[in-house]
Computed example of a mutant assay.
Amino acid sequence: MKHIHAFLLPIAAVGLLMLPVMSMAASLEPIDNAGVQVQRQEQNGITYLSGGIGEDESKAIQQTTGYNLHMTFSVGAENKYIPDVDVLIQKAPGQTVLTLSQAGPLVYVQLPPGKYVVVATRNGQERRDTTDVGSDTARNLVFHWNGDD
């Protein structure tokens, strides 16, 4: 019995070490581009992506680089992605840099470094967040509504 435990322990340890690699590989699975409708867009000199409906489209956006603000919109206890959010990004009160209607469920934006207020509105229910966006790593914001909002 000692020999079995001595053999299984290293296997279990390797399995645990491989878990992050396996989950990362899952996110890099091939994408069926026929189902992807996401295109780079620009407003006021700010580039962004909005979409993520369906698994292939959400993977395509998540694998995109070059955007320093990542937003995710969801609803309900099951965190279901939702594509019907109005987004307002302001650099300072009254200084709007981006306005999107019916955006999501994923929105990736490339902003100049600085502090921003993000307002996400769905069915009249507003969610806000303030974030410092830099040039090195992306900021992730998640906006969630309860199922009855």
Rank of each mutant, 00 (worst) to 15 (best):
T130R: 03
G76W: 00
V109Y: 00
K80Q: 14
P113R: 05
D84S: 11
T99C: 04
D149M: 08
V85R: 06
I46N: 03
P20T: 14
V75E: 12
L98R: 00
R128C: 09
V117K: 14
L141W: 03
D148H: 13
V109D: 00
F73I: 07
M24K: 14
S101C: 08
E78C: 02
Y108S: 01
I46Q: 01
R128Y: 03
E42F: 00
G54K: 01
T65I: 07
G35P: 08
A13D: 00
L100V: 08
P30W: 12
G134S: 10
T131C: 07
Q39E: 11
P93N: 14
G76N: 02
P10R: 06
A60I: 02
N79P: 05
V85L: 09
M18T: 13
L8R: 05
K59T: 00
L111D: 05
D148S: 13
I53A: 06
A34T: 12
G114Y: 05
E126C: 09
L111H: 12
D136V: 15
L17G: 15
T96E: 13
L141T: 01
A26N: 15
G35A: 09
V87T: 06
G124L: 01
V21K: 11
A13M: 09
N146M: 09
T64Q: 08
L28P: 10
L8H: 04
N44D: 12
I61K: 00
Q37G: 02
Q90C: 04
R128S: 15
P30I: 11
V14F: 03
L111T: 06
N68C: 02
P20W: 08
G94C: 10
S50D: 05
S74Y: 02
N140W: 01
P20I: 12
K91F: 00
V109K: 03
V133L: 00
I11E: 02
S135N: 10
T131L: 02
G52L: 04
P112F: 01
S135L: 04
P105L: 04
K2C: 06
F143N: 09
S23M: 13
Q43R: 10
F7H: 02
Q62R: 13
K115R: 15
S27N: 14
A6C: 13
H5A: 15
I82R: 07
R122C: 05
K91W: 04
N33S: 09
N140Y: 01
Y116N: 08
S135K: 08
V97T: 06
V133S: 07
S23N: 12
G94Y: 06
K80H: 09
